[in-house]
Design a protein around this nucleic acid. Structure first.
Length: 556
RNA sequence: GCGCCCGUAGCUCAGCUGGAUAGAGCAACGGACUUCUAAUCCGUAGGCCGCAGGUUCGAAUCCUGCCGGGCGUACCA
């Protein structure tokens, strides 16, 4: 509808120019807003104000020229007015909104799909927690955000792949093995001071215990170093299995699990180091090898090979991101915890060195989650081993509530997650509010099957049938959905869907409260039109919740 | 010190990349069930958009400088 209006405005402006009213032929693309105030019409444009300078005319004069030349053969407009400093407000024929109902029903799950991605390949890498311990709530937020961002992009015509990067190489894995090994030795009765730089969580002891009780390996007869390595592999696999299970329970599925170790095994890291040494991006200083990131916008150059010969994390990350682009992705999006934000500049520099633009690589930084219970903060230190795991939270409040709450804020603002509130089945808990709409609409649709009056006929959307203000507001909300999805995808901000769903839900509840759908003593055509409206609402709520990875229950 | 993020109603946050009288949820107060689910709805109240300048027809939004908070700043992972 906006497109049609924009065309009408452009045509009117050109006509005014031909008549000599507007001196310049520079007509910008009109942008149409939906005014906050309903009295300002359904749409408004600021084009007259924008044109004031190039046209050297007063905005209101320009607006007049445009309005006078508007052609509206199909009677889309019931009223057009010039307001304020030069806004043009358009009041649409109310029945026009009815078209959206048909449109939603025709498209079904596809309503909201667009092609702005034009088939570009994009990879979203998220969670990627080290397999040294179970996922905690912060990872959960990252999982919800990454998954929703991926879904949004897929809905907008991108070819999307979800990936998990497994940090299964290097020192922290060895530390993991050592931690398990030492706990194992303790279980065997040896007196050992457990080092503070080892993993303290209770799951380490559980792992050691299971090795012993299930006789998984004869560690006692191994050389200590072999035993540690064995423990490392065993523990990492076991923990990774747990992570996979946690994600599955949370409804998140990655297409690819990419191993860091594999980059060493196939010498990708080595090759990329050699490549950049040749290209001059890597140089030696003080016995270490440095990557020239400062010249590409970082604060300073970064070490990739330490003077002890070991590569840094950054070295494998360079190889990894080179690998991503080699796989043909046009865009690469990493979802990181906010504590890694110091890493962005060097990574962008590396991507540029690989020969891609910095814009092809984006980082979504997810801020931390403060876990609360009845308003009181819960301590989440790994050291004490008392942190709340994702699975604890999911078991307590359910995956739906957790995901919805994780997506209820911009990901860059810290999130307070109150476990008690998430469990409440009241209006304080937004996920219920939205899901309830779906349940209510389903209930109406089910009941309509037994309704006394036959409803299997079509109604003419050009006749004004749905004219109550609550109906119009509801239809306008439906019509907004595709653009919301598009903007959310463009800005990688799934919380916009969450906010939208609350608005749509609110519009529905108001409608529901004031108007019966299945009512005996009302014109069947109105009943049918309302039933279609309700069915369309159900569809859009479902589509939106799908994007967020939240279920849409048929009854509650 | 330097870099990034943030400062909007009592609380938690939106604000569509510059628009009209700044919004929503919760909390508070007052109403609404003979109705397809009251897990709902309607109304009231609540504001120097951190402060001060600048850019322009127009600023919560863009720029600069302060004030206040969070995070980062390893030859760690």
């Amino acid at each position: 509808m906006k497109d049609i209006l924009a065309q009408m405005i452009t045509r009117a402006a050109l006509k005014a120019h031909e008549q000599g009213i507007l001196p310049s032929d520079a007509i910008p693309q009109p942008s149409l807003d939906e005014p906050k105030q309903e009295s300002h019409g359904d749409f408004s444009t600021n084009i007259a104000m924008i044109m004031a300078k190039p046209q050297k005319m007063a905005p209101r004069k320009i607006a007049e020229a445009i309005v006078d030349n508007l052609e509206d053969p199909e009677n889309f407009l019931v009223q057009t007015e010039i307001a304020g400093p030069g806004f043009i407000n358009f009041h649409m024929r109310p029945s026009l909104w009815q078209r959206v109902v048909k449109n939603v029903l025709d498209k079904g799950p596809e309503f909201g799909r667009s092609q702005i991605g034009a088939g570009q390949k994009v990879q979203v890498e998220f969670v990627s927690a080290n397999p040294t311990g179970p996922l905690h709530v912060g990872h959960g937020r990252g999982a919800a955000v990454g998954d929703a961002v991926a879904s949004l992009l897929a809905m907008c015509g991108y070819e999307v792949e979800r990936e998990y990067y497994i940090n299964d190489s290097g020192r922290q894995i060895r530390t993991l093995g050592l931690s398990v090994w030492l706990r194992y030795c303790q279980l065997k009765g040896r007196e050992i001071d457990f080092p503070t730089d080892c993993y303290q969580g209770g799951y380490i002891r559980d792992l050691a215990l299971s090795i012993d009780s299930e006789k998984l390996a004869d560690l006692d007869s191994m050389a200590e170093e072999d035993a540690v390595l064995w423990c490392a592999r065993f523990a990492a696999n076991d923990i990774l299995d747990g992570i996979r299970q946690d994600l599955k329970d949370f409804g998140v599925i990655h297409d690819v699990w990419f191993s860091e170790q594999s980059l060493f095994d196939d010498s990708s890291v080595q090759k990329s180091l050699e490549f950049f040494e040749k290209s001059g991006d890597i140089y030696e200083k003080e016995g270490a090898k440095w990557f020239k990131t400062e010249a590409r916008g970082d604060e300073k150059d970064r070490v990739v090979v330490r003077n002890n010969g070991l590569t840094t994390y950054f070295a494998s990350d360079i190889a990894y991101h080179k690998n991503k682009f080699d796989r043909g992705f046009d865009r690469v999006i990493d979802v990181w915890g906010a504590d890694h934000h110091g890493y962005i500049a060097r990574m962008k520099a590396a991507v540029e060195a690989v020969g891609r633009s910095k814009e092809a690589f984006e980082v979504v930084l997810v801020k931390l989650v403060n876990l609360l219970r009845d308003g009181e903060p819960l301590a989440m230190t790994t050291r004490g081993g008392t942190f709340e795991t994702l699975s604890d939270v999911v078991n307590e409040v359910g995956a739906d509530a957790a995901r919805f709450i994780f997506l209820s804020r911009h990901y860059e603002s810290p999130l307070d997650f109150d476990l008690e509130l998430a469990k409440k089945q009241t209006s304080e808990n937004p996920v219920w509010y939205v899901q309830y709409v779906h349940a209510r609409t389903c209930s109406i649709v089910v009941k309509s099957a037994d309704f006394g009056v036959p409803l299997d006929f079509a109604w003419d959307p050009d006749q004004e049938i749905l004219k109550e203000i609550e109906e119009i507001r509801l239809m306008k909300a439906l019509a907004r959905y595709p653009e919301i999805v598009e903007n959310a995808a463009r800005s990688l901000e799934p919380h916009r869907i969450t906010f939208y769903l609350r608005e749509l839900a609110s519009a529905f509840h108001s409608f529901y409260h004031d108007h019966m759908v299945l009512k005996e003593d009302q014109a069947p055509v109105l009943t049918k039109a309302r039933l279609d409206l309700v069915t369309a609402v159900r569809q859009v709520i479902k589509n939106g919740l799908d994007l967020l990875g939240v279920s849409a229950p048929e009854s509650m």
